[in-house]
Simulated assay, not measured.
Amino acid sequence: MQAKYVQAKYALLCCLLPFAAAAQWYSGSGSAVVFDDNRQLARQQAAKQALRSTLLQAEVSLAALSLFRHDNADAELFTLHAGLPVAQIVIEEEHERDGRLSVTLKADIWPQQSMCEQRSVAKALLLAPFSLAPGAAQAALHNTELTAEINQRFYSAVQAASADFLVKAVAPAPLAAPEQYQSATAAQQLRYLAESAQAQFVLSGRLRNLAFGRQEGNLLKKDRWTRQFALELSVFDGVSGNLIQSKTYQSRTLWPYAVQAQPDPASDQLWRSDYGIELQRLLHDAVDDAATVLSCVRVKAQVIRVTDNSVAISAGSRQGLQPGDRFSLSYTDSFTDSWGNRYQSSTQEPAQLEVIRVYPDHADTRPLNQHYPAAIQVRDQVQQDSFREQHYAN
């Protein structure tokens, strides 16, 4: 099939400094299940997975997937705009086989281009294992093993998004349901977990539906089993304990086994089936949405050491910090009203800290005015102020 080209409007990109890094081509493929003969939807889903693969290779934020259109079935697969890291997309191949639609494409990507005002820096995360909601736990036996495999694949998907996330720790057990964190006690516990892990954000989820259903056959086809999948993923601010976003991802597909079967949750047969492909797609969607909602949030870290010559903070080169990056001190104030509601606010210190040395998980800083702010202490917060931009020779 003839390749199709999608080009960005280069107005902004062409105005970049002459020493900016050149765009590079990356190739990727994706597949999706065709449901109810809806090939257009399957084509969009497969193309998104293919583009996602190229962004991961280029180590570019998955928030760039926001250029992917879903609203109009007759529209082009991609609409690109100046300022985004993807300059051009070539659809190289599309084919359908056995109810699957696959798309192969290549994308011309500017690895250093950011969708935000500041240079992209990975966000420090604490991951919590998914829990099984009571209804999901009763749907079938062996769901505990399936949940463990889903957890592992979700962790791998988060870790692969290195431009967006740095996993600092994995909680030993699932967290409470998101609605419980409206209480001050639960929010305080979440803040303690995040602070202990030196994580700015917490991802937590639960499997809400793994139930089976029956697709009735006819004279030519036997009855077939279907299975639900519903995942709720919550994103918390580990500094305040507040819920940022909670979304549910759900689908239903054919189940490749008899309902009484006890398949290996890690088997290729399961993950190459319609159910496995759809489940993996939903896990990716959850990671992509978390990357989008956090993409332009300013990085926060803690003061972990104060000496006569420097102040060490709990963010380093694995998150993307570089010498010359700047942070502002942020003092947290909190109070409780007469009804027991707790409120928090942050007050920025006028003094700025500049990164002078970076290590994998921390950095040494010094004040720009050569004078330390009064009463700076370990566990004080610092917040991203500005980041040094790299320039590359042609």
Rank of each mutant, 00 (worst) to 15 (best):
K4A: 14
Q7S: 15
A11P: 10
C14Q: 14
S27L: 12
S29P: 01
S29C: 07
V33P: 12
Q40R: 14
A50P: 12
T54W: 09
L56I: 14
A58Q: 12
A58K: 09
L62E: 07
L65E: 11
N72A: 13
N72H: 15
A73I: 07
P85G: 10
P85D: 13
E93S: 15
L101T: 10
Q112C: 09
E117I: 06
V121H: 11
K123G: 07
L125K: 11
L126T: 08
A128V: 09
P129W: 02
F130P: 03
L132S: 09
A133R: 02
H142E: 10
T144G: 08
L146C: 01
I150S: 01
N151C: 05
Y155M: 06
Q159H: 06
S162W: 07
A163C: 03
L166P: 00
V167D: 04
P174H: 12
Y181P: 02
S183D: 14
T185G: 14
A187W: 05
A187D: 04
L190D: 07
A197Q: 08
A211H: 09
E216R: 13
T226F: 00
F229V: 01
L231N: 03
V239K: 00
I244S: 01
T248P: 01
S251I: 01
W255I: 02
W255F: 02
Q260G: 01
Q260V: 00
D264H: 02
D268V: 04
Q269W: 03
L279V: 11
L283A: 04
D285T: 08
V293R: 14
V297D: 13
R298T: 12
A301L: 06
F335G: 05
D337R: 04
D337N: 14
S338E: 13
Y343M: 03
S346A: 08
V355Q: 01
V355P: 07
R357T: 02
H362P: 00
Q370A: 09
H371F: 07
P373W: 07
A375G: 10
I376W: 07
Q383I: 15
S386E: 06
F387C: 11
H391L: 09
N394D: 12
